[in-house]
Amino acid sequence: MAITVRIPTPLQRLTNSQSEVPCEGKTVAELLGDLEKRYPGIKERICDADGKLRRFVNVFVNEEDIRFLQGDQTAVKDGDDVSIIPAIAGGA
């Protein structure tokens, strides 16, 4: 069993169009590292050069914003559900 990471549509071209991908890691940071290993180039769309989450992107672990948990050190375990949700600007 692994951890399911939900990929937002704009990043799915980096995951062969998959909207959910399994990843492994003990923390969100490790998970994103594993995601990058599987789908090179995806992490820079989520994190800045210092590895910090971009400010218009949110990561939720089991529907809780990691900024209110332990940030990228938030622990994750098998069966957890992780969502990456960027802001949508469009509308006009």
Binding site: P8, T9, A87, I88, A89, G90, G91
Partner: peptide
């Protein structure tokens, strides 16, 4: 607040 792009919205 509402946003829409491609096939998704918020």
């Amino acid at each position: 607040y509402g946003g829409a792009v491609q096939w998704r919205g918020q």
